[in-house]
Amino acid sequence: MIPLARRLTAVCALGAALTACGTAGPTGTAHPAKSSASSSPSPARPPVLAPGPGGLTPVFEHGPRTRGKTVALTFDADMTADEGRRAASGEHFDNPGLIAALRSLKVPATVFMTGRWADQYPAEARSLGHEAQFEVANHSYSHYAFTEDCYGLPTVGADRMRSDVERAYTSLRKAGVPRPMPYFRFPGGCYDQQALRALSGLGVTAVQWDVVSGDAFATDADAVVRQVLDGVKPGSVVVMHCTRSAAPTTERVVRSVVPELRKRGYRFVKVSELIGESGGNR
């Protein structure tokens, strides 16, 4: 979760920071395809960026600025490994109203889902995973940070980073997501060279953003709307959250931002399309 009005700077020398379908990926997950406009996802593999030097996990922040007004709305479905008790007592880490808004507005979106969230809300995870309008990607299992000093998040050791990501894919498949995408978002957006090396060989592209919505813990929806509208450029990736208790304004934000950006000529796409436009390989 990212604090309000605090632009995150990811820690990494490269800058800036849920798959299978026929071809086995890391841990036997295949790399799925970008959803088509039909009700069934396409079986082709989705685009990914080529690894960096030495096979380092590649990082994607935004799409091309010169290929038209496209923008990707992304939503982090955060839930840490130890928050089950809070969910059992009635705290809502999901946001059905937000998903309903995206459906009614016909906005494609990419949901970065923790494995713990999928364990808690398997029916919602399954529904999202079967709808062509959405693509489900990996946000770790536990939502523990992959670096030290990352917004107060507990940390996962370097020796457990890879297994944490693999465990998340297992939870997504168990929940019924048929083809989780080969995209990974670091909890808190925090990463460094050690984290990128730990995930090398998994076949994932780390997905960051260039627009921080500020919806986390926000109570002023209008302020979040302004922050998004002021930040969006062609090819932008906007980070928001799909956790009702910690981002209560997000549905209202989406209902305001979407028509305004459409009025400005923007077309909404999923992250996979932006990566494809950026030269991603299938």
Rank of each mutant, 00 (worst) to 15 (best):
G55I: 01
R264K: 14
L18S: 12
A77C: 10
V207M: 10
T9P: 12
T205A: 05
G157Y: 05
G52N: 06
E260H: 15
V59Y: 13
H92V: 07
G90H: 08
R264Y: 12
F217P: 00
N95L: 06
P47V: 00
V59W: 10
E273F: 05
P122G: 11
Y183K: 04
T205P: 04
T74R: 02
G54Q: 07
G280E: 00
S38D: 13
G55E: 06
H139Y: 05
Y144G: 07
A5D: 12
S40V: 11
D220P: 06
V211Q: 02
H31A: 14
V207I: 11
K270E: 05
V71Y: 02
G22C: 07
I275R: 01
G129N: 04
K233P: 00
F93N: 03
A198M: 10
A132T: 13
A30S: 14
N281G: 11
S142H: 03
E251L: 07
R282E: 13
S40T: 12
P43W: 01
L261A: 09
Q133I: 08
K34S: 13
S142F: 06
L8D: 08
F146W: 15
H143T: 00
R160D: 13
Q208T: 03
L14S: 14
C12T: 10
W209D: 02
E83V: 10
R7V: 13
D192V: 02
V136A: 08
T147S: 10
S42A: 15
T147D: 12
A137D: 01
E277Q: 11
G276P: 08
A195Y: 03
D82E: 14
P64K: 01
V257I: 10
T74K: 03
C190M: 02
T70A: 12
V258H: 09
Q193K: 14
M161N: 03
Y141G: 01
G188C: 09
G25E: 06
N138Q: 03
A50M: 06
V207L: 11
S142G: 12
L18K: 10
D192W: 10
A218Y: 03
G276E: 05
V156I: 12
G214S: 04
S142N: 08
D215H: 06
H241Q: 15
R179H: 15
G15P: 03
L73F: 11
T114W: 04
V165D: 06
Y183R: 02
E251D: 12
R267P: 02
G84M: 08
R185P: 09
R262P: 11
F217M: 12
G231F: 02
I2P: 01
V136E: 03
S42E: 10
V239L: 14
A33N: 08
T155M: 15
A88H: 11
V107K: 05
K106C: 09
C242L: 15
L172C: 05
L229G: 05
D220N: 15
Y151D: 12
D222F: 06
S142M: 05
L153R: 06
D159M: 04
T66S: 15
E260N: 11
P64M: 02
H139F: 04
V211I: 04
V107I: 13
W117D: 04
Q133F: 06
V207N: 09
A20V: 06
H62A: 13
A30L: 11
L73K: 01
H92L: 13
V71I: 02
V271P: 09
P46H: 06
R282N: 13
